[in-house]
Computed example of a mutant assay.
Amino acid sequence: MLIADDQAIVAQGLGALLSVEDDMEVVKIVDNGQKVLEELEKQPVDVILMDIRMPVMNGVECAGHVTEKFPDTKVLILTTFDDDEYISKAIGNGASGYMLKDLTAEKLTAAVRNVHIGNSVLDHLITKKIVGNTGVIREKRKSITN
């Protein structure tokens, strides 16, 4: 696993948290998307845990490059930002998951494991946003209740 976050204490904390799991190994921590791509050229990884806002290249842009150049690598976005634009662009660029940083260690490790085996994961608040912003789903909900 590779961790990409420009806040050193956050990245190091995530690395320490995930490294104690028997089935997870953090091989590198970087602080921007460009470094993610450089590291993947040297050593491919199964999962990237990546923040959105980083210098040089942000996580949304990087996710697109990763899924294009390294299709076997899964991207799990971990961020504080629940902006609709970030969510749609990250998912549109191939991110396998979008989680918010206020989650528990158990939910984070479960999300990483799920993404690793090919599942998609979304924070429950992100799921509510997506469902709430989809007219088709809202219309079906109205017709069921009427």
Rank of each mutant, 00 (worst) to 15 (best):
K35G: 00
M99T: 00
D72K: 14
A63L: 01
E41F: 09
A111M: 02
N119C: 06
Q34N: 01
I9S: 15
V27F: 08
L49A: 11
E85T: 06
L122G: 04
S88R: 10
T79D: 02
G15K: 01
A111N: 05
V30T: 11
N93Q: 06
V10S: 14
K74I: 00
L76P: 09
P71C: 04
I77Q: 06
N32P: 02
G97C: 06
K42T: 08
E25N: 13
D46F: 09
K74A: 13
T67Y: 03
V75I: 12
N114D: 14
G92F: 06
V20R: 12
I9N: 15
G13C: 09
G118C: 03
P44L: 11
N58P: 04
V10Y: 15
P55A: 03
Q12N: 13
K35H: 01
V66E: 03
Q34D: 00
E25G: 08
L49Y: 12
I48L: 05
A95N: 02
M1G: 05
G118F: 04
V30E: 01
L18A: 08
A105K: 11
V30M: 07
K89R: 14
T79A: 02
V121S: 04
G15H: 07
V112L: 06
G33A: 07
K107F: 01
I91H: 01
A11K: 14
G97F: 03
T79S: 13
L37N: 03
A111E: 06
D82R: 08
D5Q: 12
G33T: 08
R113S: 10
V75H: 09
K74S: 13
F70D: 03
Q7L: 14
S88T: 11
D46K: 15
L78R: 10
D102G: 15
D23F: 12
A4T: 00
